[in-house]
Design a protein around this nucleic acid. Structure first.
Lengths: 290, 290
DNA sequence: TCCGATCCGTGCGAAAACGCATGTATGGAT
DNA sequence: ATCCATACATGCGTTTTCGCACGGATCGGA
């Protein structure tokens, strides 16, 4: 009847991923190890935990029960790891941060550079993604986000206010300046698929010509001359070949925040990183507003 | 930074027991294994978890933090094990019950006997103790208790009402019958150290002569003629050499209950055991009351 | 129809974890 | 002062666990 805690965790991983290989990858062990542990767990509990099907393992009710409770255990473990990290006072080891790709590419690189120079024993792991990683589950220690609020039960600091405006390449900028009546093609964001509101009435012929789901691509599209793009000012200013065009006047854009879980927030590494980050933001705040 | 769940459990055990040997016994492993796992955990976490002192291991703050969260994990594990046990439908494996020694010795043995005969594949573990074991922590599956309520968050059934009365050996019984004025020596229970209230005024010379902390010993004392004892009627009636004496009239005594955690209560094994138990109690209820 | 991608089971040798025996230090009781 | 009980550290041989390589089964697309 006695089962190892690690076997409970293994059952949970297999329930989650549905295959030995997936569970093995999640736990960083060979998949045969998963199979063996599952067999052990079945012997220990006296219950059949999975049906072996040709396309994977299907959990029985008993396995689902185990998985449910193992998730509670996992939550406790995450809480522990956060608290341990938060109590760290040494400036060494791994620090994981996440930020949108574009912010890293166009603005944050100097922060990363300076931080690793100042604290050479800290191994900085950077997750460049627009996804909102789960800081409770320790997917990252610190997140730099573009949004109006830190959200959830997270601690946060506002780093920057920013405005957006319309940008295009030199050809477009010249053409628009020459003839306000010209046909103006917008490259729009998937989630805001229309011509932005509040455009300058001097330019009557506007039309959405492309829709993209990714801002990186949109910057490229603007550079290549596919049309004009509404983007944060810092993006237009830092990417070569782009010029601001007067089609859409600057307007407030979601702020930039740094957020973290309150458990890990006090850690020395996080504190140090925030220091460098905040200094850099203060020094360049003019880049972000009109 | 990654730590095995079993290592977290090991840290918790060492914090609890204070010594490698104690923790090893609790986890049924050699104490050297505890030492190795602690070293592993310290390497994985990068924290010193224990001070090695001459009289044992003293936990650091980090270890206490781990232990705290590991206890949450343990609670989840206990909840799981209860649910798994409660869902069992087969009549095999281990069933653990607890009851006061005297109830087992004087009354319950036939229940145990019949149950194991009827269900030969169930291994019955009997914890004969007056201590209130923690059914949430699976110290036992089912408890037979002498008290007015099932307590806590437990499910329970009342098995029997019972009365108490005064008992003594044949010598004392004869002497009391011959001369009501004789000096009557009480053997009292430690927690009720006085002559019981409501004694028969026909016997004026009563005095507490001994105090015991254990009812088993008190039965023996009564048999040996040390004095008269207030005890449940079934005890006086089932133990050889004892007779009821009219010094203290029968009066209600705490009821006998069977209690269990609601999670495990539905299990087939528990259900079967309760069946045998209840039948036996019904058949012999007259033994318990005046 | 064939090929490739995913599954999983099995057997073997390497690596890790474990139990046991031995030796040392400390503190309390006789 | 001596003896004994408790508590750890260390080294060695054994057991257990693990990763890897190989083979079989299934499914879907070219």
């Amino acid at each position: 009847m006695d089962m190892t805690w690690d076997d409970l965790r293994t059952v949970m991983a297999l329930v989650r991923h549905g295959s030995l290989a997936g569970a093995g990858a999640a736990l960083s062990v060979n998949y045969t190890t998963i199979a063996r542990r599952i067999r052990r767990a079945e012997e220990a509990s006296g219950e059949v935990l999975f049906e072996r099907l040709s396309d994977g393992y299907r959990p029985t009710d008993a396995a689902l029960l185990i998985a449910e409770h193992a998730e509670q255990m996992e939550q406790a473990e995450h809480g522990l790891m956060r608290r341990l990290k938060g109590a760290e006072t040494h400036l060494s080891g791994i620090l994981t941060i996440t930020a949108p790709q574009l912010l890293i590419a166009s603005f944050l690189s100097p922060v990363l550079d300076q931080f690793t120079r100042t604290h050479p024993d800290v191994e900085l792991r950077v997750l460049a993604t627009n996804e909102l990683l789960d800081l409770s589950r320790r997917e990252a220690d610190l997140a730099i986000r573009v949004s109006r609020a830190p959200g959830d039960a997270l601690t946060g600091l506002r780093l920057l206010y920013q405005d957006s405006a319309s940008f295009a390449n030199a050809d477009w900028a010249a053409r628009i300046a020459r003839d306000p009546q010209t046909q103006i093609n917008w490259v729009a964001y998937d989630s805001f698929p229309d011509v932005p509101k509040g455009t300058n009435p001097d330019y009557p012929n506007q039309k959405v010509r492309f829709r993209f789901d990714d801002m990186v691509a949109m910057v490229g599209a603007a550079q290549a001359g596919l049309g004009i793009v509404r983007m944060p000012m810092f993006l237009g200013r830092t990417n070569a070949g782009l010029q601001q065009v007067p089609v859409l006047a600057p307007q407030p854009y979601p702020e930039i925040w740094v957020v973290g879980h309150p458990d890990v927030w006090p850690s020395a590494k996080l504190r140090a990183f925030r220091g460098v980050l905040i200094a850099h933001c203060k020094a360049h705040k003019a880049l972000f507003v009109a």
